[in-house]
């Protein structure tokens, strides 16, 4: 009996060492009980992905960190809404994408008169500035779809899950976004 219990514990610890998903599930369970160490583990595991996506969506490192922080806090506070502990990663990512989209909508509303885009000089920094200006002219939904697919290299399914829309919507938005981005780029560089 004791041997069986020991081997069960060994198996559990083995799973937690080998399988990141099982490990994460354990952390989420501990978080629900208010364990801050587990909270720290989850932050360390997901911060890079969240900040990278937010940086690409918002094109601002500081704002990206703010949004990532907000996403973590919201996810931890609303952990009771998560029905499946295994789904934490997707849940957190969705919150982050939604927060970015909210900020993009606000920003777009602020840009009533958009500056005329200056032609591209060909340098890396100029290109980044140009990309920021071009992306700023796309509506939040199109911009998010394009960035998640082209920069974050997510699959259609992942984009759909992150944005909580059907795959068909992702497909059509992506099509429109690429075409609009191409037109904006042509206008900017005058090809």
């Amino acid at each position: 009996m004791a041997l069986a219990a020991t081997s069960m514990i060994d198996a559990q610890s083995f799973v937690s060492v080998v399988d990141p998903a099982a490990q994460e599930r354990q952390w989420v369970v501990r978080c629900r009980k208010g364990d801050e160490t587990a909270l720290g583990f989850l932050i360390t595991r997901h911060r890079m992905r969240l900040i990278r996506t937010a940086s690409n969506l918002l094109r601002d490192r500081h704002e990206a960190e703010d949004v990532a922080q907000e996403a973590f806090l919201k996810a931890f506070r609303e952990l009771h809404k998560l029905r499946d502990d295994r789904a934490f990663s997707g849940y957190l990512y969705r919150i982050c994408v939604r927060l970015c989209m909210d900020r993009l909508r606000l920003k777009r509303a602020e840009i009533a008169e958009f500056d005329k885009v200056s032609p591209c000089e060909g340098g890396a920094i100029e290109n980044k500035v140009l990309i920021e200006k071009l992306l700023a002219q796309l509506p939040a939904e199109l911009r998010t779809t394009l960035v998640l697919r082209e920069m974050e290299q997510l699959s259609y399914e992942e984009v759909a899950e992150s944005m909580r829309v059907p795959i068909g919507t992702v497909r059509s938005r992506l099509h429109t976004a690429r075409e609009r981005f191409r037109k904006l780029w042509i206008e900017a560089v005058g090809e």
Binding site: R52, L130, I131, L146, M151
Partner: peptide, 11 residues
């Protein structure tokens, strides 16, 4: 151009 402009995060 869009792919090349991907940002690497600094945390």
């Amino acid at each position: 151009l869009l792919n090349a402009a991907s940002m690497e995060p600094e945390i």
